[in-house]
């Protein structure tokens, strides 16, 4: 299928997701299940990664300060800026494209190849609404785990900086508070919300419209990871230009 045709069917899919909603009683439990799977289930890995990335950013910054003229609080400042602007929203979303994205593609893809999606449609259920809508709603909570990831990342920087002997606690904290622009956090959360939508829908698209058997489910998960990451990277560029440029 050509790229244009794919973009077209993706758009049609999105419209279909919001049509003919599933009964609220059922939808409620689907959403709670997805929150557990997609949000709560990702917390551990994101905290782990953020802590160590924060640490590495602090160490790298410290090692690259050679001149005595550069203020000591730069380590904290640089850690905060990199974590809030890029590592938490963008880097974590790429990790999520791997973790959550491949889960979504393979679970929906398996339902497709085992005719479970046909079974839903035969019953008159809007399968796209039933399967994709709860994922979109669950991922509205994604900014919360990114906020946690920001805290943990900066904390990781502090630990590495102070206990590695690269900075004093006072210098680091002074850096973290230096020239703080609240809009940067807003910018990060706008990105995060856009990425959340991408994380829910592109992997669903690849799973829902796949053809073939078990082998193709694996391939679809890989393709879905590549496309989700590519779209996140491109949107990151566009949003940065629009919001900060």
């Amino acid at each position: 299928m050509g790229y244009l045709a794919s973009i077209g069917s993706y758009a049609i899919m999105i419209v279909e997701v919001f049509r003919k909603p599933t009964k609220w009683r059922i939808m409620k439990s689907l959403i709670l299940k997805e929150i557990d799977e997609l949000i709560y289930g990702s917390l551990g890995i994101l905290i782990f990664i953020s802590f160590f990335i924060g640490g590495v950013v602090a160490i790298q910054t410290a090692l690259n300060i050679t001149s005595e003229l550069i203020p000591k609080n730069l380590v904290g400042f640089a850690t905060r800026q990199s974590i809030i602007l890029e590592f938490a929203p963008t880097f974590c979303s790429i990790i999520m494209a791997g973790k959550v994205g491949s889960y979504i593609t393979s679970s929906i893809g398996t339902m497709r190849v085992t005719e479970q999606i046909d079974a839903l449609e035969v019953m008159g259920v809007n399968a796209l609404n039933y399967l994709v809508f709860p994922k979109i709603i669950a991922l509205l909570l994604y900014p919360f785990i990114i906020a946690i990831s920001m805290y943990v990342g900066i904390f990781g920087g502090w630990v590495a900086g102070v206990f590695g002997g690269f900075s004093t606690s006072a210098d680091f904290i002074e850096g973290v508070q230096l020239d703080f622009i609240p809009f940067h956090v807003t910018y990060a959360f706008i990105k995060t919300l856009v990425f959340a939508f991408i994380l829910a829908t592109i992997p669903s698209f690849h799973g829902f419209y796949m053809k073939g058997g078990a082998l193709e489910v694996g391939k679809a998960a890989t393709t879905s990871f590549v496309w989700t990451s590519v779209v996140i990277i491109i949107l990151n560029y566009i949003l940065t230009q629009l919001l900060l440029g």
């Binding site: 005719e115 046909d118 035969v122 019953m123």
Partner: peptide, 15 residues
């Protein structure tokens, strides 16, 4: 559709 029942080849139960 609600008057139709379907048994799929692989059963297609929701796992």
């Amino acid at each position: 559709r609600q008057d139709m029942g379907m048994v799929f080849q692989g059963s297609a139960l929701f796992d």
